[in-house]
Amino acid sequence: MSITDSTRARASTSDQATPSLSHRRRQRRRAPGEAVAGYLFLSPWLAGLLFLTIGPMVASLYLSFTDYDLLTAPRWVGFDNFAQLFSDPRWIASVGVTLTYVLFSVPGVLIVSLAVALALNKGFRLLSAYRAAYYLPSLLGSSVAIAILWRQVFGDQGAVNAVLDRIGIHMGSWIGSPDTALYTLIVLNIWTFGATMIIFLAGLRQIPTEYYQAAAVDGAGKIRQFRSITLPMLTPLIFFNILLTTVNAFQAFTPAYVISEGTGGPANSTLFYTLYLYEQGFTRLEMGYASAMAWVLVVALGIGTALLFASARYWVFYGDER
């Protein structure tokens, strides 16, 4: 039972309270001028949709089949850009880096946020203070300041190494080593789990306590209750959070840019897809190539999202009643 579902449910109950009115509303013809008013209110968004989203999408699809550097007219090259991608070692590296980042940080964020949400779901007095403290990092995670701080914390003489030194482990800079640099960014993403946690927390509070009471009467222990009540009831939100966290993870840019000073280094280990796209499009002005990269990402994410939605009917539980 998600929050949005419950809002909708509330809206529909208030409709049912006045059945004749809602019935009439559904059947009535549109009031004169309502369509015009609707489009007038919508006009800023429609203009944005046309000129800043759909138009550019079409343009970038066209550019992906061309060679374009902003100064001379685009030159049609057919599928050359796409063919070139698959033999470009840096592109392949950027795909690997981005997938590793997503595969580690999405489950990381989900598990940590669910665990903390469960611990907070007891309704005690300091709840809002805890919630706020856990939530704060997710507001700061994409800032340049935090990326700078991360460079320091995981740097040669940073806090992490200072702690490890005391227990006798000596490490070099975590940022400077190709083996560890990406994992500092994964930790940074998991650090911002607060937003996801708040969504879980709101969902947990909607699970009727009668379910747990009934299960306890039937002799179900805490773990059994979690597996048979909490988890199924949360699946719509787990689905929603997987979707959001994944889409966000694919779009990460600032931390990698600041930590690697725009290079994606050391040894391409933090070369996020977005970072490489930025480099091709705006440092080297290979705008056709960058557009091809963007469309490959859109298609891949589109397929991924479609698969996720298709899988939903096997594991997402939509309760048939409130």
């Binding site: 549109r30 309502e34 369509a35 008013a37 609707g38 489009y39 209110f41 919508l42 968004w45 429609l46 949709l49 800043l52 989203t53 138009g55 550019p56 999408m57 343009a59 970038s60 550019l63 979707l243 889409v247 694919f250 779009q251 897809y273 977005t274 796209l277 499009g281 705008m287 960058a290 557009s291 990269m293 963007a294 469309w295 990402l297 859109v298 994410l301 999202t305």
Partner: peptide, 28 residues
């Protein structure tokens, strides 16, 4: 408000939530 194509436009609006911004970056 009720207006023609409202449901389609609302679906498009929700769809843009999931659209990676990369695809509009260069043309913009």
């Amino acid at each position: 408000l009720d207006f023609p194509f409202k449901r389609v436009l609302f679906a498009i609006m929700l769809g843009t939530l999931l659209l990676p911004y990369h695809v509009t970056l260069v043309p913009q």
